[in-house]
Amino acid sequence: MPRFLTVHLGATYAFLYMPILVLMVLSFNKAGLPTAWGGFSLEWYGKLATNPKILASAWNSVIVACVSTAIATTIGTLLALGVERSKPSAARDALLFAPMIIPDIVLAIALLSFFTLVKFTLGLQSIILAHVVFNIAFVCAVVRARLKSFDWSLTEASRDLGAGAFTTFWRITLPLILPAVIAAALLAFTLSVDEFIIAYFTAGAGQSSTTLPMQIYAMIRFGVTPEINAMATIVMLVSFVLVLTAQRLNRGRIPGA
């Protein structure tokens, strides 16, 4: 790899992690305000451990993000495969762009009005249904970008050799597009776990369907304390360890994912 690419990649990660380091440091700040350093303290981690609202809402966010990502990745990938294999249609493309363009507040109010109209019970399930809407579009777009350069003769060969549609998908197509599907799933998870407005409107009334972003925004008026930074620090470290472990487990197993 050319040297400048390595340097650029390093600089990009530095850019992406700069504010993360700041918020991690602030999670150890004795002072409650981010503007002054009051000395090192683990106080906020202690407070976090005894704050059931933050912990429960973080758990709700994980559930919403995981389930909506799983559904949207599956549906969105199938949709991308279907769309790329059929005749181009401007109307269908427009339908697939729409969830990305519709302002969050419009989708939020529209879905709440709709759920109320059809008497659908609000809760984590309605947030998940809503998040799948925009995530389908993002997943579909990422997978379609990959499929533009896909060699369809491979799947045709597989079918010619007598493999069924499912076998062909599972053994040929999916392994080839897997990196794009993983990228799409990462994108969907990230969008869902941090989404606020749509979640707020489609959530049920009560703590049981409060997500972490809803909890954090609601704290604005009386102070977002470093407990949230402590929470974010833990999320980062746990995810980091998970990624490293997964990478070690995979080493040598997949000779080219």
């Binding site: 990649l9 990009t12 990660y13 992406l16 992690y17 504010p19 993360i20 918020l23 990196p179 993983i182 990228a183 990462l186 994108l187 998870f189 990230t190 776990v193 941090d194 606020f196 972490l212 972003p213 954090i216 925004y217 604005i220 977002v224 949230i228 930074n229 974010a232 999320v235 980062m236 995810s239 980091f240 990624v243 490293l244 997964a246 990478q247 995979n250 994912a257």
Partner: peptide, 17 residues
């Protein structure tokens, strides 16, 4: 894949903070 994860990890924290 780990590098991709590393690029997206910071965004699993909250937008506001």
């Amino acid at each position: 894949t780990p590098l991709l994860f590393m690029a997206i990890l910071p965004f699993w924290t909250n937008y506001l903070i």
